[in-house]
Nucleic acid binder design. Sequence first.
DNA 1: AGCCATTATGCAACTAGTTGCACAGCAACG
DNA 2: CGTTGCTGTGCAACTAGTTGCATAATGGCT
Lengths: 181, 181
Amino acid sequence: MALEHAILVSLLEQPGSGYELARRFERSIGRFWTATHQQIYRVLKRMEADGWLVAEEIGQDGRPDKRSFSVAGDGQAALVEWLRAPVQPEAVRHELAVKIRGAAFTDDAGRAALIGEVERYRAEHESLLHTYLNGEKRDFPDLERLDVGERLQHVVLRGGIAYERMLLDWLDDVLDTLRAL
Amino acid sequence: MALEHAILVSLLEQPGSGYELARRFERSIGRFWTATHQQIYRVLKRMEADGWLVAEEIGQDGRPDKRSFSVAGDGQAALVEWLRAPVQPEAVRHELAVKIRGAAFTDDAGRAALIGEVERYRAEHESLLHTYLNGEKRDFPDLERLDVGERLQHVVLRGGIAYERMLLDWLDDVLDTLRAL
DNA sequence: AGCCATTATGCAACTAGTTGCACAGCAACG
DNA sequence: CGTTGCTGTGCAACTAGTTGCATAATGGCT
């Protein structure tokens, strides 16, 4: 139940419409908290009803009108309260690990197919790592001059980079292991 | 929709009852695919109805009877088919990252509380790393003599170990960053 | 003129997973 | 002899998230 809180953080960093939020969830925030636009609109509605957000109607030329959301006092208070609460144990869902252990119960052709999948998966994450590294260069060109929000965004990004590097190393290990079976 | 497949892998490695599966999900399998016993029983029921599993009633002295499940031909066929399918993009839910970025919008006391939480979280993962390392020593004492299943289990465990080490390093980075704000 | 992509919003139906509770037998501890 | 804990199974109600679909305006391409 933290989609609300991810939205609060994102809107505090920068107010925006449901559509814009959905874009951000595809890019930055979504790297550590995924959500579809349908889910986002539903939660925005509830948050507005609870007085956590206020909406401003913005008429646009050449585009549909939009409703831009900002965080209200109650919303920020809810976020502050949630920040104090213990971090919930995460529900880990690592499909690839299940598949790797499952490889013991298929034939050579099945294993070859899995190796192909792991290679595709590795290429995806290599590209994601480069996206992160480019984003780092673009958004944090001067690491000496960062405000509080940027320093926190940067440490989270460093986590993403460390994760992807670890993952790529492990996937190489996995590929070696699968090929040597 | 891969709890079924995680159960198939676990039961192929070793048949067992719902209760035993729930234990394994707390320990090994659950490190990369979590599930409660209620969820497991429900899915087992469906899998049995679909002919993926066969159950054997086992009367026990001094304990309630149990139903031990084994994977049927249809179950293994379903697993093999699933292994060939592309790995689904994972639904990432990293609450701590949301909280870290959220720390920009609270006061010093809130940040101090978050530092405490990160320290607690770090201690938990340090202990998990040691659990992994002890498990590795216990279950894989001779790395030269592993069968196919064990080699795959070991490479997944190495992934868990690499992840925890990466996480601990990053958490130190996070703590330094939060303390220096 | 017709089609596709982008911006923008949302409903309805479904699936997966969580939380709370229940029941039953036996063992070990005090 | 009562309480606690472990083994063992399961239902019911709820919440969160996914999938599929719908609508509408505009701009650009063919």
